[in-house]
Design a protein around this nucleic acid. Structure first.
Lengths: 245, 245
DNA sequence: TTCTTGATTTTTGCATGCAAAAAGTTATGA
DNA sequence: TCATAACTTTTTGCATGCAAAAATCAAGAA
């Protein structure tokens, strides 16, 4: 799967670093620093930066280097509806071609997930949850759909990962997943499409609420400030809550 | 809009070259040849190739250079449903926020398009047609949605552009556009979503049929052959029919 | 102090060079 | 004739160097 070339390796590594929250949104990322951090020269690094920028994880400003793309409420409002409609489509297609075995796998993941929910194991819940959504996507056998979805999901991954949500919302999300499993079991394409879309809409609201809260609690002001003022304390890289949404 | 840097310029130029059909799908594109053609050195060219590859217009094989991505029937089957659901979403969102003025603009484009249809002006019809779809997308004010759509559309652009279609299908497409305009005028979100999706499904069928025909008529065999046998005559770059779909 | 203006340092953009891999060519033997 | 091996050429991947742009720092004026 992974290409053996150095620049592909660099793409993966920086992507993972972003996913792990090692950078703050809006932060400048000088080439030299990354070169030293990854022990590579500038040429393959620059090639990697171009790729990450076209994935939407970085912003490249001519002559002014790379910045980590910032997740804003506007961003979430743009991306979640698209993910919702893509998952909805995936559900529809999946109903038409998913095998009993594949449904059983999803059912297993579902019960695993509900067990984590009962035990309040957020991180494990998150993993099982993501795995279910991926299984539905993969059941379409449409690689472009999966890639498009993952590209969008990657851009908001951190916000989603960090968003704490209320017990009520958590319970609701599990209830929605019951409906998802039910519709899938009946292979009811339109019901599955509907509930997946609703599920994503609700998730969007949760993540947005968490994002607003984070901004307010950390900087004392709402989002949208000047990203250049990076002296302002936000979060130390790597130091942040981890919770599922 | 366009970034002033050389590698961005190169991305645009190669993308345009691909859109103009200056390459054959599956064809190898050596760096040296492109360097000479564009009068640039390898470093910014290679950066550009990485970007185009992540846009899906090129395939990069480690140590083996770049190839023009090939448009296959499987490709179309993957991409068109996604574009359909994205346009469908765009239509829904647009209904909720489009202004009367914007609808008037679309109406003007629509009548312009139908005039071209009456006069059998394929190329002009194509332009007006595309403009209408873009207006609906832009009316969502969702840049990520537009970008995602355009990225997918770019990958199958040539096939769509080259596909000749029957008079019947052309008439049907225009009829569908009447319905689109009608639903938009009534701001009937679900009707617009429905007709846009159907419209894209039908377009997919048309383009697929044209692709099959082209493959058969040019190589005497169906698609899926070894792309390495590039000595085989397909189409000379730049020499191809232009017609709307 | 705050705001310019100019010098210095840093960073970015691009060209070039070298080594390794792949592709192409010739030679040899069955 | 075909297959294989050895050799040559081409192409790719990456490191480095230099010039231009941006950022930073410093000194002086308002």
């Amino acid at each position: 799967m992974t290409q053996a070339s150095l620049h592909n390796e660099i793409v993966s590594r920086i992507r993972d670093m972003i996913f792990e929250g090692e950078f703050v949104g809006g932060q400048r990322v000088p080439e030299k620093q990354l070169c030293e951090q990854l022990s590579v020269s500038r040429t393959p690094l620059r090639e990697a930066l171009k790729v990450l920028a076209s994935e939407g994880l970085l912003i490249l400003l001519p002559n002014r280097g790379a910045r980590i793309a910032q997740i804003t409420a506007e961003n979430l409002d743009e991306i979640f509806p698209i993910m919702g409609t893509l998952e909805s489509l995936a559900g529809e297609i999946a109903c038409g071609r998913i095998s009993d075995d594949e449904i059983d796998e999803i059912r297993a993941l579902h019960f695993q997930m509900t067990a984590h929910h009962k035990r309040r194991e957020l991180s494990k819940y998150f993993m099982a949850n993501q795995a279910i959504h991926m299984k539905i996507l993969e059941a379409t056998n449409n690689k472009t759909l999966v890639a498009t979805y993952l590209s969008l999901a990657g851009r908001i991954r951190l916000a989603r990962f960090r968003a704490n949500f209320s017990q009520d919302r958590w319970d609701q999300a599990v209830a929605e997943h019951e409906e998802i499993l039910d519709a899938l079991g009946r292979r009811d394409a339109s019901a599955l499409a509907q509930i997946l879309r609703t599920h994503l809409e609700n998730t969007c609201q949760t993540v947005k609420a968490a994002l607003d809260k984070e901004y307010v609690s950390e900087s004392g002001s709402v989002a949208g400030g000047n990203p250049d003022r990076e002296k302002k304390k936000q979060l130390n890289p790597g130091e942040h809550r981890r919770s599922p949404c």
